[in-house]
Design a protein around this nucleic acid. Structure first.
Lengths: 382, 382
DNA sequence: CCTTCCAGGCAAGGGCCCTGTCTAGAATCG
DNA sequence: CGATTCTAGACAGGGCCCTTGCCTGGAAGG
């Protein structure tokens, strides 16, 4: 509703969009099915099919049978043509790189994974990224051409304006000067979207919830690194530079009650890795069995939670990462968040629960967004 | 672009909207001017005027002269009719209540202010609100009928779902069970929108900036109460319950380096009012001249700033309230934020500046929103 | 008084969508 | 095996909305 002034082909474009979206949901439809599915009249749907076929977006699949039960005339099935293209979804993590080519239906066209041996050095990560992307894009290119766009998840802070990874002190992973936009741009025709893995995981968690109930929540990632995604009004809010959620620097209560940065709590407990500056998760999980260390960690996390709740007022806090959910498993499941009460710090209660998406949620979020963006790219220039 | 399926009158509605919006900007236009202004053709503009006049939204003003220089045929001026109505903008603060009736052009139709003697008790506030609203609405009603909607700013946390004021411990103003939606609903035909004064001030500050440059920023209100508005992607984000920005409960560094809540820092310095639980601003401004207290306050505020920056990544932090800007006046203006450096707590720098809107910014924000909503209400049911 | 100039009305045309009807062809039934 | 039944698709008619182009009427200026 912005600069749509002299509109009459606007109405045609919305018709075409409905037809395209219906075929994204159903893969193949006859013109009559299309009319019923979209609510558009039969002649109009037929005309839209004619236009879109002419533009090369739709093809007659050649399949003619209208289904088993049909008694009447055969119909022609139409489907999106191959020229609708594919999208590339990539996840960069210290354990390895995943690159997947997806089509408009959300199906996987090609997939590659490159492991990285620990500790992950910047050059190793860059090489793994290059190889994984080249392999996946190459495998898919023979079939469906170059991907039209790319969506990248990176286990590092991402500059919102440029998409480059940002190097912050005390951050666990050293990806150096990696520029995913430049690397992916060589394999993709369109835009490259880059964001933090925690933000992608939060989007996956949001989409996983039923009926859009998760419109305002915080996703705390507690693993080798510390991160937080803030979802407000249904959208991950990245802030001015894309660095929103860098909770490592939040002031919280340390072991002796002094105000220390969250990340420093782990140093004081001897839970930071020697080589990198990440958190030694194995040692941390072991330390959780000692009441003293567990209490210190819970106290520190409680201060962080209070800050998140005070500033963002989430309706719920989701804990993810390798050891975040472990803080909850101890508590009785029926009373989630009991073990992480805010200790009377905050005057209102907020439920805390473990993340439901556990299998590479960052990649899942990026992959889903790649499909969404691909669909939008097909519809938009209509 | 949502459920606009069977659209052809959609295009007519957008035409009418363009005509209405043009007349909101220019107050009166002939049909020819309307056509030129909107880019629509002359017959179409004329037809839209006919429809809108028939619906009672437009009137022929009777003015006929097409302007001084015109040599040709006289044109008829059309304008929005009186039935487009008015909106009510209200600001509730402990010092008093302001109620203003505005029209679609943003002009003031009626205005009332009721002072409240300190200390403001809940009953005083409720009475002042009743009186101010009744007077303003009554004054305007004779001319333009009942206002169509109301927008309310309240110097208290506001529940997002119900619009009721929320009572939090350690909050300065005691408005009890005040329910602005119920009070205003008696004087208004349409919806009543209620939000926190800090959020409204932040919106005013955003609109005051040139060219939408303030898309991601934080507005820290430091007065008798402590508040914060977080603007992400150009919109104030209220959180799940509307309580985002309650920074009084944030953990920060106290005088002795211990982790204390922000509000407790003022108690330790003896800067909280006896009767209410607000901050004694006069005493605080005096205390700022003592290096020790000033350093303590800056240290505490620095911890709060770090939390805001870490979680929201604002492109800039704006300080408002009665003593917030005073923290900056001491520093050299050319290097804003120097006196409030993050002390190396955060790895990236964020500029800090004083609020530019100083004259009741909360009311200004609510008033502007009332005009916007009134215009939308006129256009929407088109 | 005539010319100039502009607001507004009128006519024609094109685009888009809808309802309603007809046709063709295949499966099913008697 | 032919008649019936059912459905996909084509076609005609009509309504709505916008646009271009032309005409008219009346006021200001020479």
């Amino acid at each position: 509703m912005e600069a749509a002034k002299p509109s009459l082909d606007l109405v045609r474009s919305v018709t075409d969009e409905h037809v395209l979206r219906a075929l994204m949901r159903h893969r193949r439809l006859t013109r009559a099915e299309l009319a019923q599915e979209t609510g558009i009249s039969k002649p109009t749907a037929g005309e839209s099919v004619r236009r879109l076929t002419e533009r090369g977006l739709l093809v007659d699949t050649g399949e003619r049978t209208p289904g088993g039960r049909g008694k009447g005339r055969v119909g022609s099935y139409y489907a999106l043509s191959g020229s609708t293209g594919t999208a590339l979804a990539v996840a960069i993590a210290p354990e390895g790189v995943v690159a997947e080519v997806v089509d408009v239906y959300g199906s996987t066209v090609a997939r590659t994974r490159r492991e990285i041996s620990r500790p992950a050095r910047p050059a190793d990560v860059a090489r793994a990224l290059q190889e994984a992307v080249a392999t996946a894009a190459g495998d898919a290119e023979s079939g469906a051409g170059r991907p039209r766009l790319a969506v990248v998840s990176a286990a590092d802070p991402v500059d919102r304006a440029t998409g480059r990874l940002v190097q912050l002190p005390d951050a666990p992973f050293l990806v150096g000067e990696l520029d995913p936009v430049a690397v992916l741009g060589a394999h993709v025709d369109g835009p490259v979207t880059v964001d933090n893995d925690v933000n992608w995981a939060a989007r996956a968690e949001r989409d996983h919830a039923d009926g859009g109930e998760l419109r305002d929540f915080a996703y705390l990632y507690l693993g080798e690194g510390l991160g937080c995604a803030v979802v407000s009004d249904g959208v991950v809010r990245r802030g001015h530079g894309g660095l929103a959620g860098e909770i490592a620097y939040l002031l919280t209560a340390g072991a002796d009650g002094r105000a220390v940065r969250f990340i420093d709590v782990f140093a004081e407990l001897g839970l930071r890795r020697a080589g990198s500056s990440g958190i030694h998760t194995d040692r941390l999980l072991a330390a959780l069995r000692s009441p003293g260390a567990a209490a210190t960690l819970r106290e520190a996390l409680s201060g962080v939670l209070a800050a998140v709740v005070a500033l963002a007022d989430p309706g719920c806090v989701v804990l993810g990462g390798s050891w975040g959910p472990a803080l909850l498993d101890d508590a009785a499941e029926p009373t989630p968040g009991e073990a992480l009460s805010l200790d009377g710090r905050m005057p209102w209660a907020v439920p805390v629960r473990a993340a439901r998406m556990r299998d590479d949620p960052a990649f899942a979020g990026a992959r889903a967004d790649a499909v969404t963006r691909l669909r939008a790219a097909i519809v938009a220039p209509a």
